[in-house]
Computed example of a mutant assay.
Amino acid sequence: MRAASLDTPPPLRSPGTRPAWGAYGRLFTAGFREQAAYRLAMFGGLVANMTFGFLKVAMLFATVRAAGGTVQGYDVGSMSAYIWVSQGMLGSVNLHGRLDFSERIKNGDVAVDFLRPVNVQMATIATEVGKAVFALIPRGLPSVAIGALLVGMTMPTSPTAYVLGLVSLVIGITVSFSTVYLVAVAGFWLIETRGIQILYMVLSGFFAGLFVPIALFPDWLLALAEATPCPSMMMYPIDILTGRTTGGAAYGLVGVQLAWLAGTLLIGHLLTTAGRRKLEVQGG
Results as ranks from 00 to 15, higher is better:
residue 42 M to L: 13
residue 35 Q to E: 15
residue 200 Y to M: 13
residue 35 Q to A: 12
residue 98 R to K: 07
residue 249 A to T: 10
residue 194 R to H: 08
residue 107 N to K: 07
residue 33 R to S: 09
residue 133 V to K: 11
residue 91 G to S: 15
residue 59 M to S: 11
residue 156 P to H: 01
residue 163 V to G: 07
residue 72 Q to M: 14
residue 58 A to N: 14
residue 18 R to L: 14
residue 172 G to D: 00
residue 81 A to P: 01
residue 232 S to T: 13
residue 176 S to H: 05
residue 53 G to Q: 00
residue 193 T to N: 04
residue 246 T to P: 06
residue 89 M to S: 08
residue 143 S to H: 06
residue 119 N to W: 01
residue 58 A to V: 14
residue 129 V to H: 06
residue 214 I to T: 13
residue 194 R to W: 10
residue 98 R to M: 07
residue 253 L to W: 00
residue 200 Y to D: 08
residue 99 L to P: 00
residue 229 P to V: 05
residue 96 H to C: 07
residue 251 Y to S: 05
residue 272 T to E: 05
residue 246 T to S: 10
residue 163 V to W: 06
residue 282 Q to H: 15
residue 85 V to M: 14
residue 148 A to W: 11
residue 204 S to V: 03
residue 250 A to P: 03
residue 245 T to R: 06
residue 60 L to Q: 06
residue 185 V to C: 12
residue 131 K to Y: 14
residue 62 A to C: 09
residue 87 Q to L: 07
residue 41 A to G: 10
residue 2 R to N: 09
residue 253 L to V: 00
residue 36 A to P: 02
residue 205 G to T: 02
residue 251 Y to D: 01
residue 7 D to T: 15
residue 180 V to I: 03
residue 46 L to W: 03
residue 86 S to A: 15
residue 107 N to R: 11
residue 222 L to E: 04
residue 219 D to P: 11
residue 204 S to R: 02
residue 262 A to F: 09
residue 45 G to N: 13
residue 56 K to V: 13
residue 259 A to T: 11
residue 103 E to S: 07
residue 250 A to W: 01
residue 83 I to T: 03
residue 275 G to T: 03
residue 117 P to W: 07
residue 137 I to W: 08
residue 67 A to M: 06
residue 89 M to H: 10
residue 174 T to W: 02
residue 145 A to Q: 12
residue 163 V to F: 07
residue 203 L to H: 02
residue 188 F to K: 04
residue 219 D to I: 09
residue 77 G to S: 04
residue 216 L to V: 03
residue 187 G to F: 07
residue 29 T to Y: 02
residue 24 Y to T: 01
residue 13 R to I: 08
residue 51 T to E: 10
residue 53 G to H: 00
residue 106 K to F: 06
residue 184 A to N: 08
residue 255 G to Y: 02
residue 115 L to H: 05
residue 30 A to K: 10
residue 210 L to I: 13
residue 259 A to P: 09
residue 75 D to I: 01
residue 9 P to H: 00
residue 282 Q to E: 15
residue 171 I to R: 05
residue 74 Y to V: 08
residue 50 M to S: 08
residue 50 M to I: 15
residue 73 G to Q: 11
residue 118 V to C: 13
residue 279 L to E: 08
residue 45 G to L: 12
residue 47 V to F: 13
residue 170 V to F: 11
residue 264 T to S: 10
residue 20 A to Y: 03
residue 167 V to I: 15
residue 67 A to P: 06
residue 234 M to Y: 03
residue 273 T to K: 04
residue 187 G to D: 08
residue 22 G to A: 09
residue 134 F to C: 05
residue 52 F to M: 08
residue 134 F to Q: 03
residue 74 Y to L: 12
residue 259 A to L: 13
residue 36 A to S: 12
residue 232 S to H: 04
residue 25 G to S: 08
residue 24 Y to M: 01
residue 138 P to T: 09
residue 179 T to G: 05
residue 131 K to I: 08
residue 171 I to G: 03
residue 241 L to H: 01
residue 216 L to H: 09
residue 223 A to G: 15
residue 245 T to F: 07
residue 235 M to S: 12
residue 281 V to D: 06
residue 70 T to Q: 14
residue 118 V to G: 09
residue 277 R to G: 12
residue 15 P to G: 14
residue 16 G to S: 10
residue 266 L to E: 05
residue 82 Y to P: 04
residue 237 P to W: 05
residue 39 R to G: 09
residue 247 G to M: 03
residue 245 T to P: 04
residue 244 R to C: 04
